[in-house]
Amino acid sequence: MAKSRVLPAVLLTLLLAGASAGQAVTLVFEGEHYTWIKPSMRKGTDDGASQKGYVEIPLQRPHGEQEGEPFDDGSVTFKINIPQNGKYWLWARTWWYDSCGNSFFVMVDDMSPEIPTYITSTKKRKWGWVRGRQYTLAAGYHVIRFQNREDGAKLDQFLLTTAPEKWEPKRAYSETAQYLWQPEK
């Protein structure tokens, strides 16, 4: 497994045209530091994952060889505190098993969307970032859920950023845990 270098928590310098300078906001969350979890989603460990931890929909036996319905609605859910209004791109650092284990449903605030959104890519058997959608989020609390769509899919981190669309994350990033709500233990 290639070494991953953790880059410092980011506040990208973003210069807006005009007199004032603004900064891009990037929030980073570890998959295994969820607010809530529902089986079959479970935690796992891997040297290639940030902080060596991730969450996954475990591989089923037999693993689906054709596209079909997910076998359950296992999920991880995050309650996060967005610091300022903005348009945020979602990126997820994932590991896919194969062509039938390479996606998650993603819900933001609306947990029963009419048209489910999912993230997917063709990169398999290695950790890599996948772009999701751009969301307009007001400052305050929001709920983000990654839900079973195909078994064998793993989630290491995800981030929300107001950086330009051209910006792409590389490697793993330091967590911004201060923006994650956790229930009192």
Binding site: K124, G128, W167, R171
Partner: peptide, 23 residues
Amino acid sequence: CQLSESFVQVLGEMDMTDDFMRP
């Protein structure tokens, strides 16, 4: 001149494969 939306993009890790095995 004026610069806007400037940022540092890390390069490297450039790879992609596609066997088109999907619906």
